[in-house]
Amino acid sequence: MFEAKLTESTTIKRVLDAIKDLIQQANFDCSADGLSLQAMDTPHVCLTTMTLRSQAFEVYRCDRPLSMGINLSSISKILKCAASKDSVKIVADDEGADCAEFIFENESADRIAHFELKLMDIDSEHLSIPEDSDYQAIISMPSAEYRRIFSDLSIIGDTITIEINKNTACFSVEGDIGNGSLNLAQTDSADEKNPVTINVKEPVKMTFPGKYLNTFTKAVPISEFVTLCLTDGNPLAIEFSLPDEAGFVRYFLAPKIDQ
């Protein structure tokens, strides 16, 4: 038996919004620790991982691990039927269930909606990502700042370079109409409202596709802050953490390389 109840549908709605433009379908792996998924986009440029830890749920029961193959567009359609303050309960049989049940209940518990989502058999490839990579540079910034930087720059062109030196990050773009750049310095005071922190072991300069960096802005509502981790020649890791260590959405983006 798998049973998981979220107090408010907002949590899962936001998480799905953050991933549904990158992947069409994925296996939601349920274990005693929580709900997680890993999936790549078709051209293998971006890997998305998501975890909702068991403590994110008001009720969480997973007697034995199961994998639910879900079409992201279908689950999003069903979750549109939940008001943001409605609770969401997901129930599935752990013995080869062919559908998962979604129950939405309003705050006063006098309106209860039931939906069944058909599950799919998805043959997915799991990639092994190093857990604690020793990154050369890590930058943390308000997620609203992330949105502004990459929605602005990706309008100019799709080749975005991130260069991080001591205390400064430079984001630049080259496009058909021209180019642009933006420098962001580490904020001085620790009690600054919207801090930018930059940790550099070694300066790093890498180029990434702007289309993806802009798509990741869909995760901004999840978290007040975002962390970008870079190592020369390796995929960029971007993390949006849910409050109270309830989980996260992470993206791994393959760099553009010199030919």
Binding site: H44, L127, S128, P209, F252, A254, K256, I257, D258
Partner: peptide
């Protein structure tokens, strides 16, 4: 000038 790499160049299958 730049070529888009893909993740399979960096991460192996589990």
């Amino acid at each position: 000038r730049d070529k888009q790499s893909n993740l399979k160049m960096f991460y192996g299958s589990e």
